[in-house]
Write a protein that binds this DNA or RNA. Structure first.
Lengths: 160, 160
DNA sequence: TATTGTTATACTCTATAACTATA
DNA sequence: TATAGTTATAGAGTATAACAATA
């Protein structure tokens, strides 16, 4: 059977291809939407020399001053080893500092500098503007509902 | 200013970190939800020796028999060059065939084999089951609404 | 013994340039 | 000239193993 076409060969060319098979899955629509949003977010963060992951790291450091790298890695759901270059970059740019922890000489306490906190505020304004563009066809109630549904999907998928 | 902490150093350790700064963005919730869904989908497709991208390719070939590789690449939103290995894999497994196009000797017409169509049916059942798990906390009306909202977000983000 | 940060490494996914054979 | 498929390559993103310093 292998190698024989399932249907008689269509003599005609395929003109416009369709993806109805995939569009019926919510996951497929999530992927397509997220990729489009991610691309636009990248453009919004470019002027600040930030990527999605470095912006997220800065957000967590601003919100949780003094956290350890291991905690940041867990918050970002990435491996500690992959965080090193990200923290290096933020530190070299002067947005954060690695301070020694008083009670544990293995660990660093991560804190945003004043300049880092100010950059985060400006970048957040750009991200907010980017979100406004991407969500412009959704009303306030729709946005709340979508966010809530995404959280439910995330939780259900983790414990799948 | 660089190198000085924005706030006085917290003497206490950070216990549980929060991500409220990021959770207020729909895009962040989309990313977290999608990554969780994607991981579960990968586990669902493993028994069929398929990945998300190879399943998607097979879905488009089943739905659009005779399409060209360039059309498939466009449908998957990936570069033609990155499609070669994917099509190679599907062909070597016997799920699809590359037939010569009658009117254009540069191009191949991609068609699923009977075995490929059968595998797609079985894999689709597994994907449907996976979706059911991930969406178990959403009612039928919610699922429709979320899918519709994701499509609106995708379109708005592309033309951002 | 276990944990923190780190290095090295590999694998996937993605993007670009250039090639060949056709059109 | 342009297009279809292909190769080579490089850059992200991610995952694992192992190490030194410290708990």
């Amino acid at each position: 059977m292998v190698g024989r076409a399932a249907k008689p060969q269509a003599a005609a060319e395929v003109n416009t291809i369709t993806d109805a098979n995939l569009r019926r899955f919510a996951g497929y629509n999530m992927k397509r939407a997220f990729i489009a949003v991610q691309a636009d977010l990248g453009r919004a963060l470019e002027p600040f020399d930030l990527r999605m992951i470095t912006y997220s790291a800065l957000a967590l450091i601003v919100e949780n001053p003094g956290l350890r790298q291991a905690q940041l890695a867990e918050g970002l759901s990435i491996e500690r080893s992959n965080l090193v270059a990200i923290v290096d970059g933020l530190e070299k740019s002067g947005w954060i500092v690695r301070n020694p922890m008083p009670n544990d000489r293995r660990a660093y306490a991560l804190t945003a500098t004043e300049a880092g906190a100010a950059l985060f505020e400006r970048a957040t304004a750009a991200v907010t503007e980017h979100e406004e563009k991407c969500l412009r066809d959704l009303g306030a109630e729709d946005r709340k509902q979508m966010t809530q549904m995404l959280k439910l999907v995330e939780r259900a998928s983790h414990s799948a």
